[in-house]
Design a protein around this nucleic acid. Structure first.
Lengths: 399, 399
DNA sequence: TACTTTTGTATGCCGGTCAAGCAAAAGTTT
DNA sequence: AAACTTTTGCTTGACCGGCATACAAAAGTA
């Protein structure tokens, strides 16, 4: 006899997470298609679909054409079931976005914010903005699946604590997830390096099929996020991808802020290019000014950017040989002068790398643009919240 | 043996593979300890232990001290349950070894073998040697868990076919596993690049706890095998780690066999060092001669090796920044002059890399020595054969 | 209205796991 | 030698997830 109190619904929800993974691509499917796709029994698929409909993660999506009988109902992943906050903190600005579960930005707010103010004031500001975004979108806090934060420095991802960040005084070892989570109803908070996050965002939204990708950010600093076998590579201390202080082949003995000489960042970053222009009596002001110059067709500026691209290309050629990626995405503010920068990079990489490695290597500009950071931060949270384990945990606890 | 009668033995073997993973460390344990460790019920653990005892993968290992009652029986992983063949093919030699399931070499045979003879004669020779080793060790062919083969060129690991190898004429796209497996009773045959295989071997046998490791082979060529997050990184076309034709910072315009100039291999490989000594009127002969010279204390030779180390170090510094490994293992014949080579490498890497990345970075010589290749090849097979899925598959099919 | 196809619901079966109990085995203590 | 302890083997009953099947209701087409 069934001693268990309430009528235990025919089937629990155990494998429902796996089914959701299939639906993540957004394509609507009928039950029959899911049976075909998973090889599960009809009753099992039915139960799991029901469970996912209950959470809202799956939603009806019209009917398919009838073949003479009752038309099958279609279901699709419902990105609006919950929302996510993605935050991209730079040295002097913060962008906070509210996205749906597909990483689409619903609302976004950018504001100047000096990261040197320290973690508490900065994060409190982010939290305030997040709450404002939620409110303006008419979403409740319990619809928030989580918060993703990108920081301009090394972060130990597993704990969410910055690790000796050079430009973030007061942030070292600060418990970012704890501080933010307690102010947003205890939702999950994930933190990572800004470059890793951009790599994640570009990979998930533009190149989901590509298993080996490098995202290179060229701005005030130079860094890379590495997707290898479809997963982000963080390295032993989480400092993987730190290309800024690699030796540039023609770095000479230009002094770098890190104390070393000839670093890539000292010859090919935004400020470095501005300096080299200054030496040629062209005053670009800052990176932004440099981009304006380049866009206006200034040949000295475009040549300087192309030279920087060549220098970066030399380093990337080594990276290509080492990692054999299929795609290199170039982002950061300098990528707004993509033609010149990419021309320099491509020129060197294709010359220096072996045919086997460059066979189907693409070198392209980032397509998520200014949003790269926030989209990536949101993507990190989405991947976590929509993972099979998390979904099943949510289902069993709500049942 | 159990007859497959109606009385289905209390418990099947489904989760037995997981339990074996716990025992892979070789430590003997009692049933009680396994219950504690896995959280499974006593009956379940008992059934799984029985199943594994049946395969021989687990074996009794004495008794533990009694605490007043019947002393508990101890069990340990039994590496002698089956054997593995590891083969390391170089340009001019072949080493074939018979190992147990812990990767320990039981018997080994090295013989000169010209790889340019083409796949069939070479592989047939390997098969013959493998059979001889099995016979001399008194092992039957059905005790063979599989064959691992390392080849001196790029290999598509998933299919086991060489991919446009530069020094292996006739091997391109040859079905190595098919050819070998059909001659050895259909056992699994896994193939990979020789450097990847050495990385695997050194990682599994010496640094099992390290999640991020680079193995750098310095010999006729220069290449690296990358372990990232505990897994081998092969890249999009399987050519990851190909450091030989990366630009060396002081490569100048030395012409390389690849057609490019200034490649690392053209200035820091064995033959390159021999050439540079020749220019100083020192005749080392070949790489082997060079090592003898260095071991005899020849200062010109050791200086040249150290210089090569510096050159390699420059490239590795970039790799360290990119991948942030905990350990760099240097192997290949040149590592036999480890003091000089490592001194050069360390000098540059520690100078050029950021403190965060070098914080706990070790740069060491390979410890598996000449066996690195065969042990790695065997390790690759062992990891496959002892994976949870494979073990359970074997259990269910034998039941 | 008759036919077809999808869907919901109920039921029995199977295999894996757990919890509990009992008896045998193999020690230690008195 | 007898009593006690602890491990181990074996059995039973229960639960759970998933499968297969059956049947009826729903929602179309012919």
């Amino acid at each position: 006899m069934d001693t268990a109190g309430p009528l235990t619904t025919v089937n629990g929800s155990s494998g429902a997470g796996d089914l959701l993974q299939l639906m993540r691509d957004g394509k609507p499917r009928t039950r029959a298609e899911l049976i075909q796709l998973t090889g599960l029994a009809r009753s099992t698929v039915g139960a799991r679909v029901d469970a996912l409909l209950g959470t809202g993660l799956l939603a009806p999506s019209g009917e398919a054409a009838s073949t003479g009988g009752r038309p099958p109902a279609r279901f699709a992943f419902n990105p609006d079931a919950r929302v996510v906050i993605g935050a991209d903190l730079g040295a002097t600005h913060a962008i906070v976005a509210l996205t749906d579960l597909s990483g689409r930005v619903i609302a976004e707010r950018a504001e100047p914010l000096d990261i040197t103010l320290g973690p508490k004031p900065v994060l409190d500001r982010v939290v305030r903005t997040a709450k404002a975004l939620l409110r303006s979108a008419g979403r409740r806090q319990d619809e928030l699946a989580g918060v993703g934060i990108g920081l301009p420095g090394p972060v130990e991802h597993s704990s969410g604590r910055p690790a000796l960040p050079p430009i973030m005084p007061g942030w070292d070892d600060f418990d970012v997830p704890g501080h933010v989570s307690s102010r947003l109803g205890g939702c999950p908070v994930l933190v990572d390096n800004d470059v890793n996050i951009m790599a994640l965002g570009e990979h998930a939204t533009i190149y989901p099929e590509v298993d080996h990708l490098m995202f290179v950010k060229v701005a005030t600093g130079i860094g890379a996020g590495i997707i290898s076998d479809g997963r982000l590579t963080r390295g032993a201390q989480g400092s993987a991808g730190d290309l800024g202080h690699v030796a540039a082949p023609h770095g000479g003995d230009v002094r770098c802020t890190c104390g070393n000489v000839g670093c890539l960042e000292a010859v090919a970053s935004g400020p470095a290019i501005v300096r080299s222009l200054a030496a040629q009596s062209v005053d670009a002001g800052d990176s932004r000014g440099l981009i304006s110059l380049a866009k206006s067709g200034d040949t000295v500026a475009t040549a300087a950017i192309r030279d920087a691209g060549r220098e970066i290309g030399e380093v990337l050629a080594t990276c290509v040989s080492l990692l054999n990626p299929s795609v290199i995405v170039v982002g950061g503010i300098l990528a707004q002068a993509a033609e010149s920068l990419l021309a320099g990079i491509r020129e060197v990489v294709y010359r220096r790398s072996l045919p086997l490695a460059t066979g189907d290597l693409q070198i392209v500009a980032a397509r998520t643009g200014d949003h790269a950071g926030v989209i990536g931060a949101a993507t990190m949270v989405i991947q976590h919240a929509l993972s099979a384990e998390q979904v099943e945990l949510a289902l069993t606890s709500s049942a």
